[in-house]
């Protein structure tokens, strides 16, 4: 394993930001290669935790280094500055690094960061981005692939997550790492992780196992692991969005990942000053709860649940 410096930026009042990658060189020059990007933003922990545990797994969990067949680069964090002070984006100007790709070496700070990171990521056959949802919801781990014309849905199933969200491309997605990485010839996948600020070992390990499954099935590593799910590809019509007509204190009564029946109560809203239940949320269809609002205080008309329809 080699530790490589991807970029260094000085700061007037903080220690320099040094972004490092952990490079595991493969034993088979013909094997595919992969780069894994962890935390691009702060405030959430699973992308960072998963990437760091992957470094540990590759370093200490594989008994024979020759079982690493293809080159593997892991960058656990790009945004230490945000993580260390619980900011979501780049702390000075609040820009999102994942809206700066492919980057620009003469541009603003986060464009320069994106450019140096992108240079380091170029040339890998596969790319994995560990992310959380952009909205205020948390979810079960799933793969997000843009409908860009470059996506590889077949390989996305090799992670073994329950769902693959084949998502329509929006204008703002054209500056994301996934889209640009694909444009430059890398088969890139985003793993959308639970949007939480604590480590729940079971769910966190699910993400790590998904990555290891993929590495194993793509013959980037030689390692036997129990297979995951046969993933289901879902698109917009497969998802039922459930909004709350009332604001207040949101209490989900069904967990993410649970199957629910039509008309079953899945959550409630409590009046924040008077304590009474002002609204009960019922499942509008049979299906699987894939996401729900992550905060206790919920806005009126906010999306409370996303249910993947079944039946």
């Amino acid at each position: 394993m080699k530790k490589i410096e991807i970029l260094k930026i000085d700061s007037l009042n903080r220690a320099p930001l040094i972004i490092e990658g952990y490079l595991f060189e493969g034993s088979d020059p013909d094997a595919p290669s992969v780069a894994i990007v962890g935390a691009m933003e702060g405030k959430t922990i699973i992308p960072l935790y998963t990437a760091s545990k992957l470094v540990d797994f590759l370093k200490n969990g594989i008994d024979d280094s020759s079982k690493i067949l293809g080159n593997i680069l892991v960058i656990p964090s790009i945004n230490h500055y945000a993580l260390n002070i619980n900011e979501r984006f780049w702390p000075l100007d609040k820009t999102d690094i994942n809206m700066m790709f492919p980057g620009y070496d003469q541009g603003e700070t986060t464009q320069r960061i994106a450019k140096k990171v992108f240079d380091a990521l170029e040339g890998y056959t596969h790319g994995i981005i560990l992310k959380t949802r952009n909205d205020l919801s948390t979810c079960m781990p799933y793969i997000k692939l843009f409908q860009s014309g470059y996506e590889d849905l077949k390989d996305a199933k090799k992670f073994g997550f329950r769902i693959i969200h084949h998502k329509e491309l929006k204008p703002t997605d054209t500056v994301s790492l996934q889209y640009n990485w694909q444009l430059w010839g890398t088969k890139a996948y985003s793993i959308i992780c639970p949007n939480v600020n604590h480590v729940n070992t079971a769910t966190s390990n699910e993400v790590l196992e998904g990555v290891i499954n993929f590495l194993s099935k793509k013959k980037i590593i030689k390692y036997k692991l129990l297979s995951g799910y046969q993933s289901t590809i879902i698109r917009k019509p497969d998802i039922e969005i459930i909004k709350t007509p009332k604001s207040g204190i949101f209490i989900p009564t069904k967990k993410i990942g649970a199957y629910v029946a039509k008309d079953e109560m899945i959550g409630k809203i409590v009046h924040s000053l008077e304590g009474e239940v002002v609204h009960r949320i019922f499942a509008p269809c049979n299906g699987l709860i894939a996401c729900h609002y992550k905060n206790a205080l919920i806005f009126e008309n906010a999306v409370a649940f996303r249910v993947v329809k079944s039946g």
Binding site: M99, N134, D135, T172, N295
Partner: peptide, 26 residues
């Protein structure tokens, strides 16, 4: 706060939005 508070969304990157989107989109 430049963006929509809590959501941390730049409203000028959220158009045209939609009635079924998150609150900033609405």
């Amino acid at each position: 706060t430049r963006g929509f508070p809590i959501y941390e969304v730049d409203l000028n990157r959220a158009f045209p939005g939609g009635k079924h989107e998150f609150l900033p989109g609405q």
